[in-house]
């Protein structure tokens, strides 16, 4: 078996999600090659070559891949990937965009968002927003798979010494063009891939109070999220929403502050490894899923938490 992993990156840095996907590839077994497609992305290729368990790195460096347009990446990956048994990418917004195109061009099905590998052709994935877990077997000769990064522990990013090969394959579908992007200017990690998430709910009372959570998040290197109730109340923008209708997160640590724990919120975070709930209502459903519950007024507990964390971190 031979597995092609498509690297996730921003043309300068390899994203950690790639290391999680390589871990999923290792669980399948076989030679693992990594494809880095981008523009002026040589440094990313060098970084991918150091990842544990990587056999070879292929670098397709061309302006047509600079903004990761799905039409161009789809053609490239279908072309390069057709000689592999498995093609894997992280289930982020880039992978979700181009991978189904790859599958369609190869006339195979795609298995989306896998959280476990059972065997080379059988995978476990969430359906119904995680309210059910399906075990799915693929009969296609090439398996096109997106991987939920948080479900796999990353391989080491250092120590490997894979060969790096330049690919001279330029696929410009001529269907789309990049116009512009507005990326949130935040030094905090992305909500979907953060190792720690601190979220606030309706109990925060207003948007200004989220600053308290941001201070705690910055101590922990965490992302800040919110419940739908907090978004609907206008405290914070919708891209912070964790839940069935927002982002699905599964960090190592999830701290829910002033969140009651509606089913639609639990669907977005209950795969977190450790859940902490801080709420003054001891009957709040969030306590039924929390590993550590603190019944307290958040306006007292959160500043205390910040002080205590400063002592130990």
């Amino acid at each position: 078996m031979s597995i092609l992993v498509i690297a996730e990156h921003d043309n300068s840095e390899l994203k950690q999600a790639t290391l999680n996907v390589v871990a999923a590839a290792k669980a399948i077994g076989g030679d693992i090659d990594v494809l880095v497609a981008g523009e002026n992305c040589g440094a990313v290729g060098e970084a991918a070559a150091k990842a544990e368990g990587v056999n070879k790195v292929l670098v397709a460096d061309n302006a047509v891949y600079g903004h990761f347009l799905g039409e161009n990446l789809g053609e490239l990956v279908a072309e390069v990937g057709k000689s592999y048994s498995h093609i894997l990418a992280a289930a982020g917004t880039v992978g979700k965009d181009f991978m189904p195109r790859v599958a369609a061009l190869l006339d195979v099905a795609q298995v989306s968002d896998i959280m476990r590998v059972e065997s080379e052709d059988t995978f476990v994935r969430p359906i119904y927003a995680g309210n059910a877990i399906a075990t799915v077997k693929s009969t296609d000769s090439i398996k096109v798979i997106t991987v939920r990064p948080t479900a796999f522990d990353p391989v080491a990013g250092e120590g490997g010494s894979a060969a790096v090969e330049q690919l001279d394959v330029v696929k410009d579908a001529g269907l789309s063009a990049f116009v512009n992007e507005e990326l949130a200017k935040s030094d905090r990690p992305d909500l979907g891939s953060a190792g720690i998430v601190v979220s606030g709910g309706r109990g925060m009372q207003n948007g200004d109070n989220f600053k308290m959570l941001e201070q705690v998040a910055d101590l922990l290197g965490a992302a800040v999220g919110a419940s739908r109730a907090a978004v609907d109340a206008g405290f914070v923008p919708n891209d912070m929403q964790v839940g069935q209708t927002g982002k699905i997160v599964a960090p190592q640590l999830y701290i829910a502050v002033g969140i009651s724990g509606a089913i639609q919120h639990l669907a977005g975070m209950s795969d977190s490894k450790v859940i902490v709930a801080i709420n003054k209502d001891e009957e709040a459903p969030i306590f039924q899923v929390a590993d550590y519950g603190l019944v307290a007024d958040l306006f007292e507990a959160v500043p205390q938490l910040e002080e205590e964390l400063k002592k130990v971190l």
């Binding site: 099905a109 877990i133 399906a134 693929s138 001891e282 603190l294």
Partner: peptide
């Protein structure tokens, strides 16, 4: 169909953990 669903299970339900007395 290229994919067959072998089984569908309920997600592992979480057990409620412990209540802590204070932030420390």
């Amino acid at each position: 169909p290229r994919l067959s669903t072998l089984k569908v299970e309920a997600p592992a339900s979480r057990q409620a953990g412990v209540k802590v007395a204070d932030v420390a």
